[in-house]
């Protein structure tokens, strides 16, 4: 669409002179430079996969067979036959809802704890060593414990997301708070900002680039953890979908689901990065 209009303008402007089309061509070239190499690599990869998996005795189906075998779930993401027999859209949306809930809780708690650790020397000495140990615990190791505590799959999965994504948020927020220039603190002191005003008007905006780095890492980890957690807890969700497909030997469906998981993880990352760019007005690295 955008390409079409650009080409249209090139055609319309051409009679007037050669200057403007040149600029458009440079822009097109830039766009092509970004899009063509990944497309070429993808094509080569698919071709290689097709050739290797065409041979008799290959363990995985070639891409052509993936498309024909899994065409049902590719073409009908919205079907709903009740229970866990739903289209991919419903599975992914269930997973995203868990991530949204767990991640939101992690953001709130993480930013508050990070602020505490960044602001108070005593809190840092007390909490930092504990955080450093806890953050190395693999997400799934928390699952049995949370199942025991909550006695239900849904809150357990949300807790796993929460506990997975909170550490990078805490640590990055704390670094951001500690790096607030003394000048800003002096300005706040002269204005006699109270604790809440200082938090909202100076600390948060000043630490925002750091906080968003933490959020990006956190959202990536959440998405990693949810697929694994759902495999174990069952119910509707992309993790369960993959596990179910494996149990029914639908390898093609697994491959389609993995493509979706990858693309959505990428979109989540870009979304948080874009939000950070917007909020910090370009000072965060996107």
């Amino acid at each position: 669409m955008a390409l079409g209009t650009t080409l249209g303008r090139v055609a319309a402007v051409k009679p007037e002179g050669a200057r403007r089309p040149l600029v458009t061509r440079a822009a097109l070239k830039g766009l092509a430079l970004r899009i063509v190499p990944p497309l070429v690599v993808l094509a080569v990869f698919l071709l290689l996969w097709e050739v290797l998996c065409q041979r008799p005795g290959a363990g995985l189906p070639p891409p052509s067979r993936v498309v024909t075998e899994a065409w049902d779930i590719i073409a009908h993401p919205f079907y709903d036959n009740g229970g866990t027999d739903k289209g991919l859209f419903w599975h992914i949306s269930a997973s995203l809802q868990r991530v949204a809930l767990g991640f939101t809780l992690a953001v709130i708690a993480g930013v508050m704890l990070g602020t505490l650790v960044g602001q108070s020397e005593w809190a840092m000495r007390g909490l930092d060593p504990i955080f450093q140990v806890l953050r190395t615990i693999p997400p799934l190791a928390w699952l049995p414990l949370s199942l025991a505590a909550f006695r239900d799959g849904q809150p357990s999965a949300i807790f796993v997301i929460f506990i997975t994504s909170i550490w990078p948020i805490i640590i990055n927020t704390a670094v951001g708070i500690r790096n607030i220039p003394q000048d800003y603190r002096n300005v706040a002191a002269v204005l006699r900002l109270n604790a809440f005003e200082f938090f909202a008007k100076v600390m948060l905006p000043s630490a925002a680039p750091y906080i968003f780095t933490g959020l990006r890492i956190g959202v990536g980890l959440s998405w990693l953890a949810i697929v694994a957690a759902e495999m174990l807890i069952g119910g509707v969700g992309i993790g369960f979908f993959i596990w179910d497909a494996w149990n029914s030997s639908h390898i093609s469906e697994i491959i389609v689901a993995l493509v979706y998981v990858g693309v959505i993880g990428f979109v989540l990352d870009r979304l948080v990065a874009g939000l950070g760019h917007l909020v910090t007005r370009g000072t965060a690295t996107a």
Partner: peptide, 26 residues
């Protein structure tokens, strides 16, 4: 510290995420 003894800092110390007007408005 207090506003009756306002300070003009050596390195201006404006808050970079606020516009000029917002800095004064704060």
């Amino acid at each position: 510290p207090g506003p009756e003894r306002a300070v003009v800092f050596q390195n201006h110390s404006l808050l970079p995420w606020l516009t000029v007007r917002e800095n004064v408005a704060l």
